[in-house]
Amino acid sequence: LQAFIKTLTGKTFTVEMEPSDTIENLKAKIQDKEGIPPDQQRLIFAGKQLEDGRTLSDYNIQKESTLHLVL
């Protein structure tokens, strides 16, 4: 599935991932794409901060969901 990552500066980019991917995997993909170390990334979806060990499906993240990236 493709999801949108929106930063506080208003920049939006897309990442490809599977519902079974962990938040940790997602942070690694963001690092590959944007060069931001995972330990500096905080991802917010539906008002909740996402925990590394959980999966996208745990948070009911669907295709074309928008996640907010806070540094």
Rank of each mutant, 00 (worst) to 15 (best):
L67H: 02
E64S: 13
P19D: 09
L8C: 15
K63H: 15
K29L: 09
D21G: 07
G53Q: 10
T22G: 03
T9A: 12
Q41A: 04
N60C: 05
G35T: 02
G10C: 05
Y59T: 02
E51M: 10
K6C: 11
E51G: 04
V15A: 02
E51Q: 10
K6N: 07
M17D: 00
R42H: 12
P19R: 08
D52F: 03
G53W: 14
S65D: 14
T12V: 13
L26G: 00
T55D: 03
P37K: 06
L50E: 01
Y59I: 07
Q2I: 15
G10H: 04
Q31G: 07
K63P: 15
I30T: 00
P19H: 08
L71P: 07
G47N: 05
E64Y: 14
A46N: 15
T12K: 07
L67D: 01
E16T: 12
M17Q: 02
T7N: 05
L56C: 03
N25L: 13
L69W: 00
M17W: 12
K6F: 06
E64P: 04
A3E: 03
E34A: 13
L50W: 03
N60F: 07
D52Y: 05
F13Q: 00
L8N: 14
P38C: 07
P37S: 08
Q62R: 10
S20F: 11
T14I: 13
S20Y: 12
E51K: 08
E64I: 06
E51P: 02
K33S: 09
Q41M: 13
F45G: 02
G53H: 14
V70T: 09
S57M: 11
Q49C: 11
S65Y: 08
I61G: 04
G47C: 05
G35Q: 05
N25W: 09
L56G: 01
T9S: 14
S65I: 13
E51W: 04
E16W: 14
T22Y: 06
K33P: 01
F13Y: 05
V15P: 00
S65P: 08
P37G: 04
I61F: 09
G10P: 02
K33W: 07
L43N: 00
K33R: 12
M17V: 15
I5Q: 02
S20N: 13
A28D: 06
L50K: 01
F13R: 00
